[in-house]
Design a binder for these strands. Structure first.
Lengths: 338, 338
DNA sequence: TTGAAAGCGGTACCAT
DNA sequence: ATGGTACCGCTTTCAA
C-alpha cells in the first residue's frame, strides 16, 4: 500500500541542512537563500516528498484545502458541477485540495478542515452556511449572500446578471418581439441571481412601457409545474417571447410552447438567462446566456485564495467572462474543453 | 476567528483522569469501564469537545479524506452530482472529507492527499486514472474498470444494469410494443454501463426475434446530433418504442419524436435507462430507471472505507437500491430529499 | 542565513 | 482498568 512517506527530515539529511531550513525552503516565507531553496526543491522532487498535511495543520494553521458548498436544491443543474470542477482546478493551481461539503455532513460535531470556503448561490436560512459562518472560516460567495450572512463573508464574486438580462431583452426587442414573458425560480431558491434577473425583467418592462407577465416555479419543477408556469406566463395573447431564468427551463419550454401553439422561431422568441450546454447553448433557436461556469469556479477560487492570503480585494468582484449567444448564431460544442 | 478548541487534556483535568484514558474512552477499543466512559462522554459534551483530526491522523497514517474522480465528459449529468454529494455524506459518516479531483489537477507535482479514491465510470485511457493507479492509492470504482486498470482496483460497485435494461424491455413488450429502438452513447463514453445496456438490448432483440435498431451518439450530443440519432433509430416504420440509455436523452427525444410523427403514449413507448429527475422521472409518459445516485454514491464510499480498513469484500459488489418507474405510474418529486 | 528545541493534540506502547 | 511517556511530521520561537 502507500509506501512510507518521505519526510522533511530525510530531505534535510540528504542535503545536509536542518529540518527547519528545509521546511522553510519548501513552504516558508523565503528566509533561505535561493541556492538552498533550489537544492532542497530538487531533493524533494527526487525523493518524492509529499507534505503531510496533518502535521502541517497541527502545528501551523494552514490546511491546504478549500471547501465548496452548493445548496442541495440547486444540484440538478450542471452549472454547479462545472463550477465545482473549475474550482477544483483553481484549487490545484493554489496547491490546495477542494473539499465538497454536504449539507448534513455533521454526523456528530466535526470541524471543517479547510482554509476557507466557497459558497455558491448562498440561500437565506441555510443552516450549513450558518455553521460555516459560526466556525469563523473565511468565506467567499458566488452571488451575494443574504443579509444575515453579510458580516461573515469576506468577498463576493458575481456575474453581471442584471446587465445580461437587459441585453437579452434588448436583443429580443431588436428582433421585433414586443412583449416578452418571464419564468423564474420561486422563493425556494431566493438567490441574488434570481432576484436580479427578475428585477431586471420588471425594470425593462417599465422602461419599454410593456406589461410584465412573469411566473415563478420551483427550481426542481416537474413537467407539470413548469408546464403550468410557462402556459400561464405566455397566456396573454400579445406575448410574443419568453425569457426563462434557470438553466434548462428554456430547453424544456419549447415543447410546452408548441402545445399552446407558440412555435419558437421568427414568430416567437425564446431566451435562457442561465443555459444548459446541450439543450440551450447548442440550440440555435434559443438566445442563451453562457455563464461559463468552469471559468467562473476557477476565478472564484482565485478570489478565495487571495482573501485567505490577506491580499486586499474589493468586497464585490465581477465575473465578466460571460457571453450571450444570440438565436441564429452558430454554437460549436460548448463547455467541451476543460 | 476560530475559538480555541477543547482538547482531551482539558477533559482529563475536568474528570480527574489521564489523557490516555480519556482518549480511549472517546475513541478507543473499550478498555475503560463503562462508568468512566460515560463520565468522559458527558464532560466532552459539556465542554464542546471536537476531535482534532489532524492530530489523530498524524499519529496514525491516515489522511482523513477520500477522493472522487468523475470523467469530464460525463459532467453534464446530474447523476454524477448527486452521486458526489451522496459520497460526501457517506465520507462524513466515516469522519472523512471528500476531495474533488479535476483531471488536470497536477499543476506541478502534487500528490493525492487521500486514503483512497472513488472513480466513477472509469473510462479506458483516462490519464488521471493511470496517475491514481500509479500512486498506489486504494481505488474503488463505480462501474467496472477497463482491463488496463483492473489490477489497480480493489473493488467495484455497480447497479444491475443488464437486468434493469431487460426488465424495461420486457415491460415495454408487455405493454404491447413490439419493436423497440435504442439510442446509446458512443465510444467517447465507453463505460461498462454503456456496454452492458447496449448488449442487453441486442440480446433481448435476439431472444424476441426482433430486428435491433440501435444508434449511438455523443454523450454531450447537441440538439442536431441527438435528433439525427433518434430519427435514424426510429426510421424503420415498425419501430414502436424507443429506449434511451444516457440521462436526459429520453426527455429530449420527446420533441424529436413528435417531429417525425411518433407521439409518445399508447402508440409509441419511451424509456430511459438512466433518468433525469425533472425531465424523465417526473414524466409519466416515460418508463424510467431510477439509479438513485445519492444513495449509490453513499454506498460506494462505504465500500471504499471498508476496503481501506482492510475488511474483506468481494471484488464485485452490486448496488441494488435502484427502481423502475413505469409509464403511467405516479412520480412524486424524485431526489428531493437528501 | 541557518539551527536546536519546544510544542501542536492525539495514539501506541509499556507499566502498574 | 488506568497512567506515563514517547512520538507522529511539521511550524514556531529563540539563538547563533
Amino acid at each position: 500500500m502507500a509506501a512510507r512517506r518521505v519526510t522533511i527530515v530525510e530531505i534535510a539529511q540528504r542535503v545536509g541542512l536542518s529540518k527547519t531550513t528545509v521546511s522553510d525552503a519548501l513552504h516558508g516565507g523565503g528566509r533561505v537563500s535561493p541556492a538552498t531553496a533550489a537544492k532542497v526543491a530538487a531533493a524533494a522532487r527526487e525523493l518524492g516528498y509529499v507534505t503531510n498535511r496533518a502535521a502541517r495543520q497541527l502545528r501551523g494553521r494552514s490546511v491546504g484545502a478549500f471547501g465548496i458548498y452548493i445548496p442541495p436544491i440547486a444540484r440538478n443543474f450542471n452549472f454547479y458541477m462545472e463550477f465545482a470542477f473549475g474550482a477544483a482546478h483553481g484549487s490545484a493551481e493554489h496547491d490546495a485540495d477542494l473539499t465538497l461539503f454536504a449539507r448534513d455532513a455533521d454526523v456528530g460535531p466535526r470541524h471543517f478542515q479547510v482554509d476557507g470556503v466557497l459558497a455558491v448561490d448562498p440561500l437565506p436560512g441555510d443552516p450549513m452556511l450558518q455553521r460555516l459562518a459560526d466556525a469563523g472560516i473565511p468565506m467567499v460567495t458566488a452571488g451575494r449572500p443574504p443579509e444575515a450572512l453579510a458580516d461573515a463573508v469576506a468577498a463576493v464574486i458575481e456575474a453581471p446578471h442584471s446587465d445580461l438580462a437587459r441585453l437579452v431583452l434588448d436583443h429580443l426587442h431588436q428582433c421585433g418581439y414586443r412583449r416578452p414573458a418571464f419564468v423564474g425560480s420561486d422563493r425556494q431558491f431566493y438567490s441574488s441571481w434570481a432576484d436580479d434577473v427578475r428585477q431586471s425583467y420588471l425594470d425593462w418592462c417599465a422602461t419599454y412601457l410593456t406589461e410584465p407577465s412573469a411566473c415563478d416555479c420551483p427550481l426542481d419543477a416537474t413537467a407539470e409545474e413548469l408546464g403550468a408556469a410557462v402556459r400561464s406566463a405566455v397566456a396573454p395573447t400579445d406575448v410574443d417571447a419568453l425569457v426563462c431564468a434557470p438553466q434548462g427551463f428554456a430547453g424544456r419550454a419549447i415543447g410546452i410552447l408548441e402545445s399552446v401553439d407558440r412555435h419558437v422561431g421568427p414568430g416567437f422568441g425564446l431566451a435562457s438567462l442561465s443555459s444548459d450546454p446541450t439543450t440551450e447553448l447548442s440550440n440555435q433557436r434559443i438566445t442563451a446566456v453562457d455563464l461559463a461556469p468552469w471559468t467562473f469556479g476557477r476565478e472564484a477560487v482565485n478570489l478565495l485564495a487571495a482573501v485567505i492570503a490577506g491580499e486586499p480585494r474589493p468586497y464585490l468582484n465581477r465575473f465578466e467572462k460571460v457571453a450571450i449567444r444570440k438565436a441564429g448564431e452558430s454554437t460549436g460544442r460548448p463547455w467541451a474543453s476543460e
